[in-house]
Simulated assay, not measured.
Amino acid sequence: MTYSGRGAWRYLRIGVVSGLLLIAGWAVASDSFPQKEITVVIPYVAGGPTDVLLRDIFRAAQPYLGQPVSVEYMPGSGAVRGAHYVKEAASDGYTLLVSHQALDLAYLAGQASFYHAHFAPVSMLIRTVSIPTTYAGHSAQKASDIAALVSQRARPLAFGITHNSNDHFFWLQFFEQSGISPADVLMVYFPDMTSQVEALLAREIDFAMLDMPSSGQLYTSHALTALGVASSERLPGLPHVETLREQGIDLVNTTDRGILAPKDTPPERLAILASALAQAINDTQLRYRLAYDYGSLIDYRPLAAYSNYMDEQFHVLVPLAEQVHFKR
């Protein structure tokens, strides 16, 4: 969920090239796949950040796959509904899941009986930087203003969150780093990020953790105010917005998106899929759009490398989950 500045940005080209070399042998071994349309399941509503990002990536990957790619939306139960559908699908490489931390968080929250280890990893693709946000005209102009406002206000400030999600953990870490007691704020729960954006625009809540895919145009039009970016460096698309670390808040946070397939999908098919995705995100125009328009870092990790990364992040999430009294 974190990355380290310039080294990470340089890593994208090295990672893609290395990944292509590692999976080239597998890809050559089974050039008859795919022979029909591939279905990508997005376990969220259409138009959300995951949809925006992955549609662009799969559009670029389609020529390398040689077959059409269709998107199916299956929101519900904190991404569990869509994940369960892919988990039970045929292990043939034709049904894929777009995933991020929500899958493991649902397991830790007792909402699902499965987590990332019950799937076959294709590749990690991008990490999207989290952005604490408020509506235009709010008295908070920087993230570092929030702690003082919490102590000064007669009524609790309202923070939008999606229950048991990455933004839930973001705010808990933010409160800890800012010296804010969760008991002094009002947590307002929403089903997804899109509904949080709508509530923020309507001034029904004070703050939400958003990102560039969901709110980039709203930042540009000044309908919403980015209070800081949870990255090691300022975002290319928001160069005037300070990082949280520049404001004295030691917090780096990203939503890490990748592709999973049903367990026991043949490794040579996984490799072909990973190769197509690697070639897609190596496209110069797509890389620029992901960085500047979508505030996302390309962090390509194919197959076993993605599996190892998810294992590491899972062990980071477990103690955090215990802090919010998850059932597991």
Rank of each mutant, 00 (worst) to 15 (best):
G66C: 08
K36G: 11
I38C: 02
V69F: 05
F58W: 12
Q62R: 15
Y64T: 09
V45D: 09
V71Y: 04
E72S: 13
G48L: 06
G66F: 09
E72Y: 08
K36Q: 13
E72N: 07
P43Y: 04
T39H: 05
V52W: 00
Q35A: 10
V28T: 06
V52A: 05
D31K: 13
L54H: 05
P43R: 01
P49K: 14
L54K: 03
V45R: 12
I57F: 04
L53V: 15
E72T: 13
V45F: 03
A60C: 13
I57H: 07
I57S: 02
Q67Y: 03
F58E: 00
V41L: 06
Y44R: 09
A29I: 05
P63E: 11
Q35H: 08
A29L: 10
I42R: 00
R55H: 12
Q67E: 13
V45P: 00
D51S: 06
L53D: 02
R55N: 14
P34V: 04
I38P: 00
D56M: 10
Q62H: 11
G66Q: 09
P63W: 11
R59W: 07
L53Y: 10
E72V: 15
S32A: 13
D51V: 04
S30N: 04
G66M: 10
F58T: 01
E37V: 11
V69M: 04
V41Y: 01
T50F: 04
A61I: 11
P63I: 14
M74F: 01
L53F: 11
Q62Y: 10
S32F: 09
P68V: 07
G47Y: 08
W26L: 13
L53H: 05
A46C: 12
R55W: 06
D51N: 11
A24P: 06
P49H: 13
I57K: 05
K36I: 05
A60E: 14
F33G: 00
P43W: 05
F58L: 07
P43E: 05
P63C: 15
V52E: 03
L65D: 03
V28F: 11
D56A: 14
P34W: 03
I57V: 15
E72M: 08
Q35S: 15
V28E: 03
A61W: 04
P43S: 07
L54Q: 10
G25D: 09
D31L: 07
G48Q: 02
R59Y: 14
L65Q: 02
A60H: 14
P43C: 08
G48Y: 01
K36E: 14
V71K: 00
P63D: 14
P43T: 04
V71F: 13
V71C: 01
P49S: 15
P63F: 12
Q62A: 15
V41R: 01
V52Q: 02
A61P: 05
R59H: 15
P68K: 11
Y44Q: 08
W26T: 04
S70Y: 00
Q35M: 07
Q62N: 09
D31Q: 14
A60I: 10
P63A: 15
L53K: 08
V69Q: 03
A27M: 09
A27Y: 05
S30C: 01
V52D: 03
A61K: 01
W26K: 08
V41S: 03
I38Q: 01
A24Y: 15
P34K: 03
Q35G: 09
D51E: 02
